[in-house]
Amino acid sequence: MYATTSMRSAQSAYRDNAVATASPARLLVMLVERLVLDVQRGLAAQEAGQWSEAHEHLLHAQDIVIELESSLDIDRMPAGRQLAALYEYLRGRLVLANVRRRTSLTEEALDLSRQLCDTWREAAMTAVAP
Rank of each mutant, 00 (worst) to 15 (best):
D16Y: 03
W120D: 03
Y14V: 08
R8G: 02
R41W: 01
S52K: 10
A79L: 11
D118Q: 14
S52Q: 14
S52G: 14
E108S: 08
P78H: 10
P130F: 15
D73W: 08
Q62V: 03
C117A: 14
A129C: 06
M125H: 12
T106Y: 00
I74N: 13
E33H: 06
L110Q: 00
A45T: 00
P24G: 09
V99F: 04
V99Q: 05
L43W: 00
Q82M: 12
A25T: 15
L72R: 08
L68C: 08
S6P: 02
R100H: 15
S71W: 06
V39Q: 01
I66F: 14
R8N: 15
G80L: 03
V128T: 14
R34M: 05
V29W: 01
N98T: 02
M125P: 00
S23A: 05
A124R: 05
A48H: 07
T4K: 13
R8P: 00
E122H: 15
A48R: 12
E56Q: 12
L27T: 03
S104K: 07
S6C: 09
A109G: 06
N98F: 02
R76F: 02
T21A: 12
L105Q: 06
Q82W: 09
R121T: 15
I66P: 11
R91N: 12
R93K: 05
V29L: 05
H55G: 08
L27W: 03
T103N: 07
R93L: 11
E122P: 00
G80R: 05
I74A: 11
L116T: 14
P130H: 14
V32R: 01
L35V: 04
Y2E: 04
T5A: 15
A127N: 07
L90D: 00
L116G: 10
N17M: 15
E47Y: 00
C117F: 09
V65I: 09
A127P: 02
Q40F: 07
M30F: 02
V99D: 01
D75V: 08
A97K: 01
A44C: 07
Y87N: 01
P24D: 11
S52P: 03
A84T: 07
V32S: 08
Y14H: 12
R26Q: 14
V128G: 02
H55S: 13
T126S: 02
A61E: 01
V65L: 01
V29F: 00
A79Q: 11
E69V: 04
N17C: 12
E69Q: 15
S113H: 09
Q62S: 06
E53S: 11
M77H: 10
T4Y: 07
L105F: 04
A10S: 10
E56S: 14
V95T: 15
Q50P: 02
L43N: 01
L37A: 13
S104C: 11
E33V: 08
L96P: 02
R91Q: 13
L35C: 03
T103C: 09
E122F: 08
L37N: 10
A61G: 04
A22K: 04
A18P: 12
A61D: 00
A25D: 14
A84Y: 04
L83K: 05
A3D: 12
P78R: 12
G80S: 10
